[in-house]
Design a protein around this nucleic acid. Structure first.
Lengths: 114, 114
DNA sequence: TTCATATATAAGCAAATTATTATATAATGA
DNA sequence: TCATTATATAATAATTTGCTTATATATGAA
């Protein structure tokens, strides 16, 4: 079987991180799109520190990358991370969440912020 | 894309369960083999109630099935569960753990018990 | 420089999770 | 029936997690 494997302990850590509805939805969104913190705050109706803390955990594992543009910091899935091949099949099986960003665009809150 | 999707909330619950080193290793083992509680107790050097509780969680989600044979209860991955297609690609990427059972066989503790 | 906005971090707390200890149930064999 | 073995469950304790509140940092604009 020509399949790369991932250390079991590392896999468990990654799966635990993905095993949270907010983080999992974020990852699915960021797999297609680049998002900033304030968008997540609006999408999930969560506090800004709460969103920042979720992103911090994903970043600490290297699953996402950040890019500052002025005041804003844009996050996206780090597809060159060595573990991306592990999480990709998981994300692929999740229903697309892009409608959440579309809703922001319709309300004008996507443009105003980013 | 001809790919079935899984509800996001359900996916998060499953990933959280898999996001534990003991449970993840158990699932990888049970994907190939049928194991009983006492084997897991020896493999993980954990208490019997701790192992039973991990198995209970996996069973509650339908991820594993049990079959009693005399005093022993054998557990294995429930491949007819509707979510097996979701977890299979995850398990496939994990390194094979069968050596753990081989070690029991060499020590004679596999046969004595099951 | 000062103010406003976006984001990060730290501390504290509540909720959830895991392990332990004690006990119950079920099957086997003497 | 009684003792033993395998497993489950309940109660509790210990640990971890996630959120809130408060504060700090960084950028841009007035």
């Amino acid at each position: 079987m020509l399949q790369t494997t991932i250390e079991l302990e590392k896999a468990a850590v990654i799966l635990k991180l993905l095993g949270d509805k907010t983080r999992l939805t974020m990852m699915k969104l960021m797999d297609n799109q680049t998002c900033c913190v304030c968008e997540f705050v609006e999408i999930f109706q969560s506090s800004q520190p709460s969103i920042s803390q979720h992103l911090r955990k994903l970043k600490d594992l290297g699953l996402v990358k950040e890019e500052r543009k002025g005041q804003w910091i844009f996050y996206s899935v780090n597809k060159s991370n060595e573990y991306y091949s592990f999480i990709r099949p998981i994300l692929e099986q999740l229903p697309n969440q892009d409608y959440k960003l579309k809703e922001l665009e319709e309300k004008g809150t996507r443009i105003s912020c980013c």
